[in-house]
Design a protein around this nucleic acid. Sequence first.
DNA 1: GAATAATTGTTCTAATTAGAACATGATAAT
DNA 2: ATTATCATGTTCTAATTAGAACAATTATTC
Lengths: 156, 156
Amino acid sequence: MTSVLTFPTVLRELLRTHQTFLSYAARHVHALDLTLPQYDVIITLGNSNGMQTKKLGEETLITKGTLTGVVSRLEDKGLVERLASKKDGRSQIVRLTEAGRAVYEQTFPEHLRHINQLFNDYAPEEVSKLEADLVRLHQAIMIARGDGVEENADEF
Amino acid sequence: MTSVLTFPTVLRELLRTHQTFLSYAARHVHALDLTLPQYDVIITLGNSNGMQTKKLGEETLITKGTLTGVVSRLEDKGLVERLASKKDGRSQIVRLTEAGRAVYEQTFPEHLRHINQLFNDYAPEEVSKLEADLVRLHQAIMIARGDGVEENADEF
DNA sequence: GAATAATTGTTCTAATTAGAACATGATAAT
DNA sequence: ATTATCATGTTCTAATTAGAACAATTATTC
């Protein structure tokens, strides 16, 4: 290796693995003429009867400014629709149309196989361990960011 | 949890951790009026006397179409310069200017502390283990992608 | 209840992103 | 050597991204 430590190498590896995974997942999705964020929205809505934009963003990890555009493009394609919430005048409900549900049901099982294939050589405990390790790092970052455990903020 | 398995949860956690890390790292970098990819280029060049655009892309994980723009913006800021390679007429060498080197030297140690702080509670072996686990997943994805081990491609 | 604060989603901007097409220079095959 | 193939970097496009500002609505506080 030529390069001296820049970001610690474990973090570089995190970026690399993330990037490679996205390109792997995108390959399957692009055959459907959808982008990865668009497909992520579809499969997230696939298990529900519609949800608030806010919750949809939390599930998909798409920030709200971005999500507006992603949902609009899916609306243009006729795969989702927006409805005003009856309980909250600020809120929109997003849900699959018939066509969107058809896409979900016809493609999701294959998509899941495509993804799960990555773990063919993993024991279940190994997957759980990796997940736990990622959660640990995630929490370490949040704590360093100051979004820590939010204990009693005794401003007296 | 309400949501049924979509992406396997370990992969969702990979995305979440990646995203949170980027926002953590960006916070420090934005104070320098640089974006994260721009700063990544600067610290990658900081250890060298200039390198090919191709190699710069490999080190930073930035694809070539994107890298052209990132380098151009750094050029506009006077932090890097492009030189024609003498050995290869297609190739450009990118290197830090004086100003770019000053930014690197004055900010990198603090940046490194900022990043390393994430691992305060880690034993060194734990970091190595996590890195090895990420490398393993990365390779599993590459193999599933077909970029596998590229053994003897004995066609027929 | 009226003023203040917080929440929800859209709009706007600059930058990044992947991917494809392209021009130019280098390399290989014949 | 000449053709065909490959490598390097730029340009182009559509989409995503984060972040900030904003309008509309809801919740809180006094």
